[in-house]
Design a protein around this nucleic acid. Sequence first.
DNA 1: CGCATTACCTGGTTGC
DNA 2: TGCAACCAGGTAATGC
Length: 287
Amino acid sequence: MPELPEVEVVRRGLDAHVAGRTVAGVEVLHPRSVRRHVPGAFDFVGRLVGQTLVAVRRRGKYLWVELGSGEAVLAHLGMSGQMLVTAPDAPPEKHLRVRLRFADDGPELRFVDQRTFGGLSVEEMTEVDGALLPVPVAHIARDPMDPSFSLADAVDAVRRKRSEIKRVLLDQTVVSGIGNIYADEALWRCSLHWARPADKLTRPAVRRVLAAATDVMGEALQVGGTSFDALYVNVNGQSGYFDRALAAYGREGEPCRRCGAPIRREPFMNRSSFSCPRCQPRPRATQ
DNA sequence: CGCATTACCTGGTTGC
DNA sequence: TGCAACCAGGTAATGC
């Protein structure tokens, strides 16, 4: 699933392949993929045709392409979204939702999304705390790879939450970019159970877990960066080389890489949390 | 207001 | 073999 490292891989690939090019035509094949564009699919197309794509930017898991008009095409990949740069005559993918053709007749940009949790929209920009962001991203906190990210501020924000630490790690208004996979990895790395109350953790403990999340996402980015070539931007988050580096996520029953105890899986927010029963003991009473 | 829960989606897998 | 149930999970809306 695309979390920060996977989205950053896509951002880099898009920036390399579409920046500076002019949109000649847009085709929306599934209305749901542009549902966040309130004026509708027709308006979406109209706002893009003729625009130059200036640069591709990202905050957390949100991605946007700055337009010559000053607006931006905002993209969220959801769980299964992919941005592909393909030859215009390449056969359509099964779940092709939106395609952008360019005036140079070069490779086209395709938004492919099986589950349609993701989507595209054209948005106006707004300034928040010195950063220029698409309006729907205004409430998203800086991610750990943002040059202006403040670890001290993030530690304080986490400790203000009266909730379980993993819920807080997944809250994109506190720190952005962390999803289920990297949350479990970060908690495993600093031997914390996901249900530990965030406001009861010490400042150093929260600093450690945020540093672990930053580290693990950085490592994933390094190996994910190899997975696209000139005509193909790979956002296949669960494949690639980072799979084999995972210590907790998806390893139910397999030995903990630290102590050998079988990794457990527990229900969490209608999904799963993976942890080591010995290294990450469940907190006693959460009162 | 702040935190918890649910709806939204589809296709691959599992179990009967 | 067929089909229903289940599962993946980020986000916004809803509930308390």
